[in-house]
Each structure stands twice: as structure tokens, then as C-alpha cells.
């Protein structure tokens, strides 16, 4: 891949579109979840108000350098993941910085923010943060295992580590999607997806009703606003990876919006039906249901 300066405004445009889409879609999903509980739910612009308010708070305190860096790392994870995979397949504008070995890098970025968060929250010195981090890392590590197995199965299947080539191989009708050509890998990855979306039943880490409220206990004002920005960017970036690997990618923005929304809804539908797992229960659940499917996918590939 050769680097062109025009890619920088293109990348910024991608982030801008995805950020706004994420703010609106997250609010819409909160509304859907509220309707399940027979409430009206938040207004559709609520996320904008929250974000502006947190950026506009007048005072903030710090606990040290890593406390600053935690949210920055987190946002880097989200933006990095978004920029290193092709957002729109076949578009020069929105392929961003994707290159030949980006699949491995994407896997790394999925984990990167969590690690940065662990360092930052640990420096805040709050015992609830430490407990939240312990829970979060164990659960994310466990959920990552079936995803890694599925990704390797897909890489073996298509004999490439480039996401662009994997998308290219799935073009021409939905029967070419990995969903139909390699269903076992997709099943393992979708189970891992449930675990990494921080929605019920796997949201014990961040749920405000549990130990308040996990890793971000001490985060406030702009720090929290950075993390909120990442909270809308990162799930979409992750869904883009899923969409590219398993659901044929997207060739235009409308297709992108619909596919991302539908993939997100999988975790929402599961979340509104099932009650919350404790961490050891969710780890056991992944061990029993998700990992064997992933291993099977690798063995058959």
C-alpha cells in the first residue's frame, strides 16, 4: 500500500460519519431496550447532550499520567480498529489504511483499549476500579478466544490475512458470505461477539447496579467524555470487522448502516431476554459453548 496525503481527510470523514451514526444508533437501541421495558426511553439526541455536557464541565482532577492515558489509549483502540480495516469495500475514499496483514493488527486493536483502560483505572487507586478491571480482563480474554479461533479458521479458509481480500472473496450474492460457506466459524465468532459488546448477559463489568460502576468509577468530565466517544465508536469498529469477515462487507454507506444495525441488534435481542451472568458463569459458558465450536471450525478448515 502506498500512502497518499488525501487519505488523512478521508479518514477523518470516516470517523465523523461513524461517530454521528454511532451516537444516533446507540440512542435508538437504548430506546428499543426501553420499549421492551415499556418505557419511552431517552430522546434520540441524548448522547450529544451527554457528550457536550461532559466536555463542558469546568473542573477535573487527575490521579497521574496513566490516568490521563487510559481514555486516550481506549479511544486509540477504537479509532485504530476503525481505520485499519476497509470500512466500505471497493471505495478508495473509505478503505482508509487497510493493508495486506491487517487481520492480525485488527485482533490486536480489539484488545488494545482494554489494556490501556486497565493501566489508567488502576492508577486511579479506587478499589472498585481494580475489581472492575479484574472482571473485565478475565471476561474479555475469555470472549476473545473463540473470536481468535474463528478468525484463524476464516484466514485458513481464504488463505489470506488481508481483510480486503476476504471481503473480495465473499462478493457476488449472499450465499458467498462466510456465514454460509463456514457457518461454524461464524457461530463461534457471534458467541464471542455477545461477550465483548458489554450488554447483558455479559455486562457485569460495567453495569451500574453491580459494584459501581467498574473500571470508570473515578473517571469524570473530559476523561469520561473521551470514553463515551469510544463507547460509540468501538462497537461499530468491531462490527465492521465482523461484517467484513463474515457478512460480506458493505459496498455503500446505506448497506453499511443497515448491516451494522442488524449485527448490533443480535446482542441487543439476546440482552433484553437473558439475565446477567456473573464473571465465573460467563467464563464457564464460553468454555462450554463457544470455544469447542471455534476449535471445530479450525479442525475442519
Amino acid at each position: 500500500m502506498t500512502f497518499e496525503w488525501i487519505q488523512i481527510p478521508y479518514a477523518l470523514l470516516t470517523i465523523f460519519i461513524v461517530l454521528n451514526y454511532g451516537l444516533l444508533m446507540t440512542a435508538l437501541i437504548a430506546k428499543i431496550a426501553a420499549r421492551v421495558g415499556r418505557r419511552h426511553g431517552i430522546p434520540i439526541w441524548q448522547n450529544y447532550a451527554d457528550l457536550v455536557k461532559n466536555y463542558g464541565l469546568r473542573s477535573s482532577i487527575t490521579h497521574g499520567v496513566m490516568f490521563y492515558m487510559g481514555p486516550v489509549f481506549r479511544l486509540t483502540g477504537g479509532v485504530g480498529l476503525l481505520l485499519f480495516v476497509p470500512t466500505i469495500y471497493g471505495s478508495v475514499m473509505f478503505s482508509n489504511l487497510s493493508f495486506a496483514g491487517d487481520l492480525i493488527l485488527a485482533l490486536y486493536f480489539v484488545f488494545f483499549g482494554t489494556l490501556g483502560m486497565a493501566l489508567g483505572a488502576a492508577e486511579s487507586g479506587h478499589p472498585y476500579s481494580a475489581i472492575g478491571i479484574t472482571r473485565g480482563l478475565s471476561q474479555v480474554t475469555m470472549a476473545e478466544l473463540p473470536l481468535a479461533l474463528a478468525v484463524f479458521a476464516v484466514a485458513l479458509h481464504y488463505q489470506t490475512l488481508s481483510i480486503t481480500e476476504i471481503v473480495a472473496a465473499q462478493q457476488g450474492g449472499f450465499l458467498n458470505w462466510t456465514l454460509f460457506t463456514n457457518p461454524l466459524a461464524v457461530a463461534a465468532a457471534m458467541l464471542a461477539f455477545l461477550g465483548s459488546m458489554m450488554r447483558p448477559p455479559f455486562d457485569v463489568v460495567l453495569a451500574p447496579q453491580e459494584i459501581p460502576i467498574g473500571p470508570p468509577t473515578e473517571y469524570h468530565s473530559s476523561y469520561l467524555a473521551l470514553m463515551q466517544t469510544n463507547r460509540v465508536l468501538f462497537p461499530i469498529a468491531k462490527i465492521v470487522v465482523y461484517m467484513n469477515l463474515f457478512f460480506g462487507g458493505a459496498t455503500s454507506w446505506p448497506e453499511f448502516f443497515i448491516k451494522v444495525f442488524l449485527i448490533y441488534m443480535v446482542s441487543v435481542l439476546v440482552g433484553v431476554v437473558f439475565p446477567r451472568f456473573r464473571v465465573e458463569q460467563s467464563i464457564r459458558w464460553f468454555m462450554i459453548w463457544a470455544v469447542p465450536i471455534g476449535i471445530l471450525a479450525i479442525v475442519l478448515a
Partner: peptide, 22 residues
Amino acid sequence: MTPRFDAYRYGIQWRPTPRQAN
């Protein structure tokens, strides 16, 4: 917080930590 009055529609939420509360 519950369906009858549902303050969330007015942008009112509850936060468990004083750092994030207004």
C-alpha cells in the same frame, strides 16, 4: 426510573459515583 414516570425521557439519569454526577 420505572415505566410509570420514566425520568429518562427528560435526560435525567442516575450515576453510582459522585465523580460523574451533577
